[in-house]
Design a protein around this nucleic acid. Structure first.
Lengths: 278, 278
DNA sequence: GCAAAAGTGTTTCGTTTACACCCATGC
DNA sequence: GCATGGGTGTAAACGAAACACTTTTGC
């Protein structure tokens, strides 16, 4: 490590070994991880085991080390706290730098967001105090994480308009109505089935899935009921999720094609940033 | 200031008075300020007077203090170094956190960008070592500022598609062809005059300017010739600006209406984020 | 008076929207 | 067999793109 002893030094064995000529601040990362499961958009939260905000839910994250970039630190903390390694890249939301956002000391945080597929979610289950919450039923959050959450939701809604990121939330194989419901859930609007289908097919982003036996939608897997999750009183007292009707078993009328993502076209469309309205 | 003496302390009079239990990093801000003058998009740079990268050009910025948010710090440094106070808000580009981006110590920077009107530019002239460079003739930059510059250009191009930010670069009063040239300069494309005019008028973002005598386009004011600016040899050796033809005096055919921005509609369109293509 | 810039309007074409009927499945 | 969800096509309306002629001004 290159070190400028004019501005700072390291004193091994000292109680406060890192010493600086000028005041420094702590830097943390936080990750807002979204998934789409049981017809609802959900976020990943961890319960804080330490003060401050002990016992409250927060986004996975932690202090950034000096030998890693913000992205590396965010991924490391995410893995440490939830055992999750997203298959799609994490993207920067921005910094949150309110002076008093942490009572201990001045802490600036770099927030990220990422989208993961339902099949990736299982990996997080062995983490002790991590849980998925539907976005319309998140409990009160630690620090200024509600602000971060709002920013993430806004950003997701914008991105989903201009980039085909919805696919990062779906498993390999899905149907067009599945995709449509996802868009409707996130954007909170209804689309015409036929127009949606025509446009999405015309965009060339879908490929017919090879008919490997019976493709199983991850969405229909059994998942831990919301009530079994350890959540704060405030969270349980919230009204039940209205916009996410539960029909886990099967859907009548299922016949239509199964599709997969055309990776190449996906990358192209991501570049172009067309506004997708259905 | 609330201070957690478990993790850090302040020792008055000590050579290195700020002492921490864990390693900390420095945080800086950098501002990419754009303006549009003499038919060209330009950025504001300052010459570094100190090592490292002494003598090189860089974006105005500096260390973030513990008692200010990133936005406040960015504006403070900008004002200190260039005497510029942008009338439109600065927006976050993101953090740049490469581990070795500064040779002295670990420095994470929060980058911002902002758009200023030509009439605001004059205020920066008394700053000793600040200068405006056409975006296609920027000299080599200090640290990883080229990366920041690339990110800013990309962001500006995207934003100008979806938000009516072009107006932040123009003076109060302008003509439609002025506006069109600005869009063409930034996006590097040509539009049909008639379609551009029809669309921009239909959007309702323009108001006819009150005919106060003879409105003077700031673009036509005399400005310091490029050659008089103190720039690095690398910068002068670059080929002349091709995409920015210089006709400063006046344009034949000038007759048409002068317009101003309809603030209310501007805010609305900013929210909507329609893709503007002409 | 000529060249270069700017004002104006219409037609064509493609895309978007709205809408109706039939089929498949589960209870 | 009925309710629900899903597949398909078409006509009308709107917005985008292409395009020509005239007017103004500076040299």
């Amino acid at each position: 490590m290159i070190m400028d002893t004019k501005t700072h030094r390291f004193v091994p064995g000292a109680e406060f070994p890192w010493q600086y000529k000028y005041e420094h601040m702590a830097v943390t990362t936080d990750c807002v991880i979204f998934t789409y499961e049981d017809w609802a958009l959900k976020v990943l939260l961890v319960r804080r085991g330490e003060a401050p905000c002990k016992g409250m839910w927060a986004f996975p994250g932690g202090f950034l080390r000096n030998d890693e970039t913000a992205e590396q630190g965010a991924l490391r903390e995410l893995k440490e706290e939830t055992a999750l390694v997203p298959s799609s890249p994490i993207v920067q939301l921005g910094v949150f730098s309110d002076v008093h956002r942490d009572p201990r000391e001045r802490v600036l945080t770099v927030a990220f967001y990422a989208l993961v597929k339902p099949s990736e979610v299982l990996g997080g289950d062995d983490a002790e105090e991590a849980a998925w919450f539907p976005v319309d039923a998140v409990p009160p959050l630690a620090f200024d994480h509600e602000k971060i959450f709002d920013a993430a939701m806004e950003r997701l809604r914008r991105d989903i308009h201009f980039q085909p990121v919805g696919f990062d939330l779906l498993d390999e194989t899905f149907t067009i109505p599945d995709l449509q419901r996802l868009y409707e859930a996130i954007l909170g609007v209804k689309f015409d089935r036929r127009n949606f289908q025509r446009k999405i097919l015309a965009s060339g982003i879908l490929e017919e899935a090879p008919v490997t036996a019976e493709p199983e939608m991850e969405c229909f897997k059994e998942s831990i009921p919301l009530e079994d999750m350890e959540i704060t009183p405030e969270a349980v007292s919230m009204e039940p999720i209205e916009r996410a009707p539960v029909h886990k078993k099967a859907r009548p009328g299922r016949k239509g094609g199964w599709f997969t993502l055309n990776r190449k076209r996906y990358e192209e469309l991501k570049e172009e940033e067309h506004k997708m309205e259905f």
